[in-house]
Amino acid sequence: MVTSGWKVGTVTATRTQTPTGRSIDLAVPGWPGNVAGQHVDVRLTAPDGYRAVRSYSLASSGPGESIQLAVDRLPEGEVSPYLVDDLRPGDQLEFRGPLGGWFVWRPEQVENVQLIGGGSGVVPLVAMVRSHAAGGSAAKFRLLYSVRAPEDAFFADELAALANDTFELTWAYTRTVPAGWPTPPGRVNRELVERVTFAPSPNLMTFICGPTGFVEAVSNILVDTGHDPARVKTERFGGA
C-alpha cells in the first residue's frame, strides 16, 4: 500500500450529477492505481497556507493516473461546498492514497456480490460495478440503489447502461418516484430486500454504503433475514 507523500492532482473535468452533487475527474501524476472501493485523502490549501483534509471514496479504480471523485454538498461543510460549487478544470488539489483494504472488491473475486447504496454512498459501489464490467468477471452483481428522487441519483445513466445478465440494477425511491412507477415512494424495507437482493449464501459478499441510519436499517434487515454478518461489509457516513 502506497500512502506516503502527497501528490498534486489537476482537475480535468467536472460534471453535475445531482442537484447537490457532482463528479470530478483529475489527473494525478504518480497515482499508483487503486482497487474498487478504496478512498483517498484530499488536501486543499488556501492562499494564506490554511489547509483542510477530507477523505472521499473513489468512483474510479484500476491502473492509470486518472481518478474520479463524486461529492455531495453538505450544507454546513467546509470542503464539500467548495468542491461542488467552485472547483473548475485546471484547479489543483493534493492527494494521498489509495487508502483502505477492507471495503474493496477485486476482479479476481468469484463470489456473487450484492451492493446496496444510499444517496452519495453509491460512489464506492459504482467503482465496483465499473471494475466488474471492465474485467468481464463471471461473478453476478446486483445493486439496490436508494435515492430520495430520480434526480438525486449519481451516475444514473451509466448504471442503467451497464445493466445486463451479470449486473442487475434496482432503484428504490424514498420521497418521489418517476412517472408511472409501479409502487409508492418508501424506505428500503424487508419486503423489498427479500424480493430484489440475493438470498443468504456462503457464495455471496454484500457491500452497504450510505448515511448511518440507512446502513443500520439495511444491515439489520440482512442479519434478521439470515445473512452472515461476517459477509456484510459496511461503510457509513454521518452521525447517529
Binding site: F103, E216, K233, A240
Partner: peptide
C-alpha cells in the same frame, strides 16, 4: 488535520451486533 463535529459519526466495518 482534525475538524470539530457536534455530531457523533458512526464507523463500523459490518452490521451492528
Amino acid at each position: 488535520g482534525q475538524y470539530l463535529t457536534e455530531d457523533f459519526p458512526v464507523l463500523s466495518a459490518g452490521p451492528t451486533p
